[in-house]
Computed example of a mutant assay.
Amino acid sequence: MILHSRQWIDHYVGEGRWGQRTLLDQFAHNRDAHPDREAVVDPPDRPDLVGTPARSLSYEAFGRAVDATAAELIRRGLAKDDIVVAQLPNIWELAMLYLAVARAGGVLTALPLQWRATDVGYVAELTGARLYIAADHAKGFDYIAMGRTLGFEQCLSLAELTAIAEGPVGPLPPVTVDANDIFTLCWTSGTESSLRACS
């Protein structure tokens, strides 16, 4: 998803302000150069957040999880420029999901855990996202049930995402991702509200 005009891209590339290297390129470089180096570490309170043990992954293991997840997302129908909504705490699967969705050609938009149906529904409607990935339960709230109620075509739980990431790497067709493609959509609480008439 490229939002800048070709004129502006050529202008800034010509001036040397913009380049062609992507975050995926940088990650691939680090993975190749330091496969055994620690790439990501869970927060120590992961068990309290999602009920599973905290982990750390090497670049090689993390990269394999990215590949496996990207391949499965493509198999499930994720296409270039599709937007994926995620509601996960800051755990290794969320970091991995940013890269996997980009690798599949999509755009990840991660939402705060405290957002509920009004905010998540607003994002779903505005983006047209069909895939929702969320914690199974966090702090007693059922995110997957909310996602289904909001009408997402596919709702993927954290447990399912982790299993995909740790599973076999399926066919991974080449997807063109340009340095000018949008990597993520970010939201701010308070400036993204919709106006409602008061009676």
Rank of each mutant, 00 (worst) to 15 (best):
I2K: 08
H4D: 12
S5Q: 06
R6P: 15
W8R: 10
W8M: 07
H11P: 06
G14N: 03
E15Q: 15
R17H: 11
R17I: 15
W18G: 07
W18R: 07
G19T: 09
R21W: 05
L23A: 09
L23G: 06
D25T: 02
H29L: 12
H29Y: 12
E38A: 09
A39S: 01
V41H: 13
P44W: 11
R46I: 08
D48F: 12
L49D: 02
S56K: 15
L57Y: 13
S58Y: 03
Y59F: 11
A61N: 05
F62C: 01
G63F: 08
R64H: 11
R64A: 07
D67T: 08
A68N: 04
L73T: 02
R76H: 03
G77H: 00
D81W: 13
D82N: 03
V85F: 07
N90Q: 14
I91S: 03
E93V: 07
L94R: 08
M96N: 10
M96D: 06
V101P: 00
G105N: 05
G106L: 00
V107H: 09
P112E: 03
L113P: 10
W115S: 06
A117V: 11
V120H: 10
V120C: 04
G121P: 11
Y122P: 04
V123Y: 04
L126T: 12
T127V: 08
L131Y: 12
Y132G: 04
A138T: 07
I144V: 12
G147W: 11
G151H: 09
E153N: 04
L156T: 11
S157N: 05
E160R: 15
L161I: 14
T162A: 14
A163T: 14
P171E: 03
P171M: 01
T184L: 07
S194W: 13
C198W: 12
